[in-house]
Computed example of a mutant assay.
Amino acid sequence: AGVGGNLAVKYIIGCQVDVGGVDLGFGGAIEFTGGMLSGLGLDGSLSLGLAPGQVAIVDITDKDLSDSGVAAVQLSQISFNLNKCGGYASARSAVKVIGAKGYSTDDGALSGEGTLIQSTLYGKPFSIG
Rank of each mutant, 00 (worst) to 15 (best):
I78G: 03
V19F: 04
G4D: 01
K101S: 07
G86C: 03
S127T: 12
S68Q: 07
A51T: 08
G123V: 00
A56T: 03
G39F: 06
K124H: 05
Q16R: 04
T115Y: 10
C15R: 10
A8Y: 00
L50N: 09
A29I: 04
D106C: 04
K10R: 15
D64N: 11
Q77F: 05
L82M: 09
I117R: 14
Y88K: 12
V95L: 14
Y11H: 05
F26Q: 13
L7F: 03
V58I: 14
T33D: 06
S68E: 04
L116W: 13
Y122F: 15
M36E: 03
I30V: 13
S68I: 09
V3H: 01
Q54H: 11
A51F: 11
S79T: 09
N81M: 06
G21M: 13
L50A: 13
K63Y: 02
S38A: 08
S68V: 11
K63C: 05
A94H: 02
L37F: 08
G34K: 05
A8L: 06
F80G: 01
G20C: 06
Q16A: 10
E113V: 04
I78F: 11
G112W: 15
K84I: 00
T120E: 15
G5D: 02
G123M: 01
G39D: 09
D64R: 14
L24P: 00
M36F: 06
Q54V: 09
V73P: 06
V17Q: 07
G39R: 08
K63P: 03
G129C: 02
G21L: 08
L24Q: 11
T61Y: 01
V19S: 08
G112I: 08
A109C: 10
S90P: 00
V95G: 01
D62C: 01
D106W: 05
K96F: 02
S79K: 08
S79L: 05
T120P: 03
S127F: 07
S104R: 13
T120L: 11
R92Q: 06
I30Y: 11
G69F: 12
V22W: 13
